[in-house]
Amino acid sequence: MIAGNGQYKKVDKMNLISKFLMVVALVGLGACTDPAQFGGGDGTGGTGDLGAAGDPASAAYFQQTVGDRVWFEVDQSTLTDAAILTLDAQANWLLQYTEYSAIVEGHADEQGTREYNLALGARRASAVEQYLVSRGVAGNRVRTVSYGKERPIEICSDEACYAQNRRGVTVVSAGNGS
């Protein structure tokens, strides 16, 4: 009985450790795949293996360290100063790692009608694409898609969430040039 209890405790401890490791892994995975949820396909498919975020040549590095997204003002597609900083870094990365191509997603918050927001998302995606091209990224490496208000990341209905949803997201993938 006692031996049994001891064994139990040991197993518990191991479980705790493995649970802890799993949580770490999940958090890591979550951070990697979250933006990819809104990547190619139906806005739910990912770009597959993003690689290790520590590897500067990985899509994960682009996402987390370079920064894959920029934000817009209400009903605007003008790039802010902060957006331009991010896009400069994106352009430099794309110029260095030429095996990657990019799809730029344009998104809108829910304060607009479906069709208009599709057009607004197209405008935002295009603003990002045009800036990247103006920084020297070849036009045939970048495509755009608009999701309008169909794929919010934040789901509250106030400005804190809306500001996160009015975004342009650059999703990179290797060897997938158009």
Binding site: L118, A119, A122, A125, S126, E129, Q130, S146
Partner: peptide
């Protein structure tokens, strides 16, 4: 219908 090209619809 609407068509978007180069950001213009």
């Amino acid at each position: 219908f609407s068509l978007s090209r180069g950001g213009n619809t």
